[in-house]
């Protein structure tokens, strides 16, 4: 079995509210999350907005300093903020954000954008620096003449490919992808996902893939984790996840997805109908945080927060139903 390269234990990230009506309270964006990623695999971290999936990713890359918990990468502790991390760690973890329109500086050319990680990590090829950049462009299937263009003259998909090239420049072994295709059309998404799959194979990359799209994860992820209000509700290998979803929230998510074929319709759990909305992470309900929407709720759910339990190989569920 492949080596574990990223391990997150008891990760918590609270944001204090500094002003306004709710001053003094905290936003519990991530509230005790455990997961790990093995070399060369894709972990899909799925959840609704407000579930804390992006915050988790930002903690992993060190954009936020974490409140509590431990993050280790290849056995090395990286729980600190990115400004305190050694360069070698920054080099080994790549990041691609959601909206390529905002992650590429409009005032800098493609060449400047791609050169930055190379010069920071001192891996510029002195003999032919340009050739090195052209290779990067080729790797993400962008034409060479883009080297002197600005992001504004690129299409949305092409910008995202450029952002991926920038993340690849330092040859990382883990890529954190925060909804990289959710702002793009499906025809472009297909291209980018195929490219990511190819790169993963070629470079044995591990992906932490943040998304809200379960259909996409079905075709991409090795394992899937569902987040709800800062906690992981269920984590399972992709096959198991779709054939035997256990957590009521997973079932609710699956039953809500609009699909195209009858095969897919058959996969949707019929018993669970979507109702209610995700509560604010400022006022997390006591007990199990899903108790406001769960169709199978019992008295115990209001009193005690369930613990993660293993119900199959690599399949963990956090619900009293499986106690």
């Amino acid at each position: 079995m492949a080596r574990t390269i990223l391990e997150v234990k008891g990760l918590k990230k609270y944001f204090p509210i500094a002003a306004g009506e709710q001053k003094g309270k905290v936003v519990r964006a991530v509230d005790g999350v455990d997961f790990f990623i093995r070399e060369g695999e894709t972990l899909g971290l799925v959840g609704e907005s407000g579930s804390g999936k992006s915050t988790t990713a930002y903690c992993v890359i060190g954009m936020y300093s974490i409140t509590d918990g431990e993050i280790s990468f290849k056995g090395q502790d990286i729980s600190m903020h990115s400004s305190k991390r050694p360069l070698s760690i920054k080099k080994d973890i790549g990041m691609v954000f959601q909206d390529p329109g905002t992650t590429l500086n409009p005032q800098r050319s493609v060449k400047q954008i791609l050169s930055l990680p190379l010069s920071v990590h001192k891996i510029v090829d002195k003999r032919d620096p340009e050739e090195q950049l052209l290779k990067l462009l080729e790797e993400v299937e962008l034409p060479a003449e883009y080297l002197y263009s600005y992001p504004a003259s690129l299409g949305g998909g092409e910008r995202q490919m450029l952002a991926i090239a920038r993340a690849l420049a330092t040859d990382p072994s883990l890529m954190v992808l925060d909804e990289p295709t959710s702002a793009l059309d499906v025809s472009v998404q297909a291209k980018i996902i195929n490219m990511l799959l190819r790169l993963q194979k070629e470079r044995n990359l591990a992906y932490l893939f943040i998304t809200h799209d379960l259909s996409l994860m079905r075709n991409l992820a090795t394992r899937i984790a569902i987040m709800y209000l800062g906690k992981i509700a269920e984590i399972a290998p992709t096959e198991t996840f779709f054939s035997a979803p256990r957590h009521p929230y997973t079932q609710m998510l699956l039953s809500s997805i609009p699909v195209m074929t009858e095969d897919e319709d058959a996969l949707k759990p019929k018993r669970v109908v979507s109702r209610g909305e995700i509560p604010s992470p400022v006022d997390v309900p006591p007990g199990c945080s899903f108790n406001t929407r769960c169709p199978f709720v019992t008295d115990g759910c209001f009193e005690e927060d369930p613990a993660m339990r293993e119900v199959g190989t690599d399949h963990w569920v956090r619900c009293h139903l499986f106690a």
């Binding site: 259909s215 195209m260 897919e264 996969l267």
Partner: peptide, 9 residues
């Protein structure tokens, strides 16, 4: 469009 039933991209 990625399918919930799988089948690759």
């Amino acid at each position: 469009i990625p399918r919930l039933s799988g089948g690759g991209m």
